[in-house]
Structures are given as C-alpha cells and as structure tokens.
Simulated assay, not measured.
Amino acid sequence: MAAGPGDECDCGQGPCLSAGLIWASREGWLITEWYSLTPATDLRTVPQGLRSRDPEALFAARRSYEPFDDRVLDLSPFQEGQIPLGPLGEVQVYATNPRGHYSGRSHGVGCRWAEEIGERHEILPLAEFLPLLPQSAEPSSGGYDSLAEMFEEMMYQDRSDERWCGSYGGYAVRRFTPEQCAYYRERRALYLASL
C-alpha cells in the first residue's frame, strides 16, 4: 500500500512513515521523492542520491541510548511466537548476510560497514526474516564494574561465531505504514502489559 499525503500516523515518532517524513524533510528530500517510495519499493534500485541520505528516514530506529525508548523498533514480542505478525509480516528487511551463507557478520543499513543500501543487501519479508534471528536475550542486570571490565569484554571476547553486527543488530527494517504501526503499538503494549 502506498503512503500518500494525509496518511499520517498518530504516534509521529515511532517506527512509522510519519516519523520518517520528519527525517526526510531534514535531509532535503523533495515531497514528490518521498511519496514516490511505496512499502514495496526495492530501495536498492532508487537513485544513488536518495540511497546515500540518512537511513533514519527509510528505516525504523534500531538503536537508542535511552532505556525503553518507544522510537526504537522492538521485535521481541513477535519472536516469542505468541503474537502473530499480522500486517507486519510483509514489511521489508534489509541485511547483508541474514542466512549466514557467507563468512562475516550480517549488516543492516547505517553502520560503518554498510552505510547505505546496496546490491549486497538481501531483502526478506519480516515473516521470513524473524525466525533467523536469535531469541531475545534477557536484559543485562547491571553493566560493568569498571572501565577495564568493559574494555576486556569488548576487545577479548571470542565473537567468531556471531552472525549479527553489534552496531545496529545486523539488519534494517523499513518504516511502517500507519496501519502497520498501529498494529505494532497495540500488540506490543498488550505484550508488555502481560509481563
């Protein structure tokens, strides 16, 4: 379904196209360029000038330094298998090595190893991609006792078997239509209330 003028999501800041439009306007996108991109558009085929712009306009935020940030996409409620993906199942996911067929980690869009969308990115629907992700880890209870402990963890831990980039999780999820975003927020709220 194509997003068009007036298709605004009432959350205005989450993983929706409305929030993307805010980023796009900061990046100098023409309104006609923005609305020419549908949720089905293969972003690898758009002109280089659009692909090289800030990916925050096109992809739902995957990282935040604030705990429990509602602007950041949280797929964990859907990974448990109790909440159906519904309309989210068709959302595009971009990753360089989602199935682990190649050596090296998978990267999304925006990290220093894959700053922009390119031919090396595969596109999968979220319904096909989600089972490839490891189950959500339990949140950390404390952190590090010292800077040296953090440095040792970062520098010396064996990460040879890790498939997913640590910067942005190794994948990028397209922003949601207003309907998809409403479904996501409703189902996530129900899941969090049940914990």
Rank of each mutant, 00 (worst) to 15 (best):
F68E: 08
G49M: 05
A40T: 14
F78A: 12
D54I: 00
S36L: 04
L88T: 12
G110Y: 02
E66N: 04
I83W: 01
E33S: 15
L37Q: 03
R26I: 12
E80T: 15
S64R: 00
L30R: 15
S64W: 05
Q92D: 09
D42L: 11
E90T: 14
T32D: 14
D74Q: 02
A61Y: 06
A95T: 03
P77E: 11
E80Y: 06
W29I: 11
P98A: 05
Q79Y: 00
A95L: 07
N97C: 08
T96G: 13
E115K: 04
L30V: 09
A60V: 00
I31T: 09
R26P: 13
Y35D: 04
D54K: 03
G100L: 05
Q82A: 10
T96I: 12
D42M: 04
E27Y: 01
H101S: 11
E119V: 10
A114W: 01
E115H: 02
I117M: 14
P98W: 02
T41H: 01
E119M: 06
Q79P: 00
L37S: 07
Q92V: 04
G81N: 05
W113E: 12
L58S: 06
Q48L: 08
L58Y: 06
A60G: 08
A60W: 00
Y102F: 09
E90C: 12
R62Q: 11
F78N: 05
I83E: 07
V93S: 04
P87Y: 15
A57E: 02
E80G: 15
W23F: 08
A40V: 12
G89F: 11
D74I: 00
P67R: 08
R71M: 02
Q92K: 09
R112C: 09
